[in-house]
Design a protein around this nucleic acid. Structure first.
Lengths: 160, 160
DNA sequence: ATGGATGCAAATGATTTGCAGAATG
DNA sequence: CATTCTGCAAATCATTTGCATCCAT
């Protein structure tokens, strides 16, 4: 396994200059195309996700923003819109709620999920992706997305 | 990718002589150890899973067996027991209910799930397993289980 | 004005649990 | 007899929707 084949990176690796602007532009474009509006609630939810730089549960977002009068349903519907335009992805955890993250300009990655502390570590496996694609092609299976999650105990929790 | 690296097999590849007997033996042993009993309901549920040779939803089992007076809760609790002793595994599908399958003596495999017809195709990726293990070791992550599912349209549905 | 957007509360759907009676060893 | 089991119904919990109202254009 070489360095190209295996790359780790923190969720915070996203960014660069004007990252937030680019994200908002994609969102607005999507909304306009659908005849929808970029409301302040939607913007606030998106900004919160960008700032978090990690996987958030719907309720984490809701609890943080309800002081601004934003309801759970709005968070839910905004996340849906954000997924529709490819800005956001979600991870279905074993038990409990899904976790959402910004994915624009972030390479595809898989997740190591600590069942102890809930922390999610990301890992890139370009080689695995290649094998998957080849397999699907051979089988005539047309993949739209995949989920590859390893559950266990992270370094810190494994020691404790 | 060689033949050893990539192996497909139908869910019905399980079996061989006395397969059902071996499964029942594992179950009974587990129950006895816990001071529990191998009741006729539990046996019926297990047998139904063995006979099915495919991924079943809890409700499929329930609907098939309720004519024998078996309740949903019993199916639920039996599946839990069967997972505890390693006889059964479940796949969390995108939407809807989990699907359960017998796993005794079946090699680990991943799933290609058709979002159109719900069919689940299985695939073995020994090479991928190896890479995963190595990565976890490097990161000090102690894996307990993983889930690797590709969603898309199967050959038949992709054509239609 | 008109259509989209929001928040609330209630519906949904899968999963899980409490409990009283039945079955088991 | 002392537990364990079971089925029912009801509780949970995340997710989703209906609806009256609010807001932006």
């Amino acid at each position: 396994m070489t360095a190209e084949e295996l790359e780790f990176f923190p969720a915070a690796s996203q960014g660069g200059p004007d990252y937030g602007e680019r994200i908002r532009a994609v969102f607005e474009k999507h909304l306009v195309k659908q005849g929808l509006n970029l409301t302040k609630q939607r913007l606030r939810i998106l900004d919160f996700l960008i700032a978090a730089k990690r996987h958030l549960e719907l309720d984490e977002i809701y609890l943080a923003l309800r002081k601004h009068g934003i309801g759970r349903a709005t968070v839910f519907r905004s996340l849906k819109l954000l997924e529709e335009c490819g800005l956001v992805d979600h991870v279905t955890t074993t038990k409990g709620a899904s976790r959402f993250e910004i994915k624009l300009e972030r390479p595809h990655h898989d997740h190591l999920i600590c069942v102890e502390c809930g922390n999610i570590q990301e890992v890139r496996w370009p080689q695995l992706e290649k094998i998957q694609e080849e397999t699907c092609r051979k089988l005539g299976f047309a993949p739209t997305w995949h989920r590859h999650e390893i559950f266990g105990r992270c370094r810190r929790c494994a020691k404790a």
